[in-house]
């Protein structure tokens, strides 16, 4: 795999830019896609957000100073884009975030790109009960298997706070799954 610093330099150079961008997309497309999909739940929205994320990265890479790591910067953009999409969806439908979550879960049952059974649907319902931040932390730790230090850099939150969020999220999901069994 190409070193991150070299990749950033190549992205900032007009001659190497397009090739480096292809490498960037290839390296991160799956990770970022799943990160986004877990927030927006359906494939079409995830596809939109993923494309917008890479376009933002492409347009703003010149200003990237390397204060954070490239991947955490991209994760941050992806997270913001995904949450912004949810907010604008809620606005369009004129509903609150709770109602939006309910609708998203309802749509999941008919989604051709969701093959989950009753247990997996229940898992999504359990996750929908979590506050936004806890859900993010849970997804990133449990499914994406990121380290606390990495999540800390992406979400700009202390490791201690993340551990507490994760712990609470696991407890709540377990309790939900047990209760509704």
């Amino acid at each position: 795999m190409i070193a991150e610093e070299t990749l950033v330099q190549d992205l900032q150079h007009p001659e190497t830019r397009s090739q480096a961008f292809e490498v960037l997309v290839d390296t991160y497309k799956q990770r970022l896609y799943w990160h986004i999909r877990r927030i927006v739940l359906n494939h079409d929205d995830a596809d939109d957000v993923l494309q917008n994320t890479f376009i933002k990265v492409y347009k703003n890479i010149k200003g990237f100073k390397g204060e954070s790591k490239l991947y955490s910067w991209m994760y941050r953009i992806a997270t913001n884009e995904a949450l912004t999409l949810l907010k604008s969806n809620a606005k369009k439908l004129d509903v609150g975030s709770g109602e939006l979550q309910d609708r998203m879960l309802g749509n999941l049952k008919a989604d051709v790109y969701f093959e989950g059974d009753a247990i997996q649907l229940k898992l999504q319902k359990a996750m929908a009960t979590l506050p936004e931040k806890q859900k993010l932390v849970f997804n990133m730790k449990y499914f994406e298997e990121l380290k606390y230090t990495e999540i800390s850099e992406i979400l700009e939150t202390s490791v201690g706070g993340l551990k507490a969020s994760y712990h609470l999220a696991v407890k709540k999901i377990e309790a939900y799954l047990k209760e509704e069994a």
């Binding site: 877990r38 494939h43 969701f114 989950g116 059974d117 997996q120 898992l123 449990y142 499914f143």
Partner: peptide, 8 residues
């Protein structure tokens, strides 16, 4: 007991 597979 939280499943690892989400069905997406």
């Amino acid at each position: 007991d939280i499943p690892r597979n989400e069905g997406f």
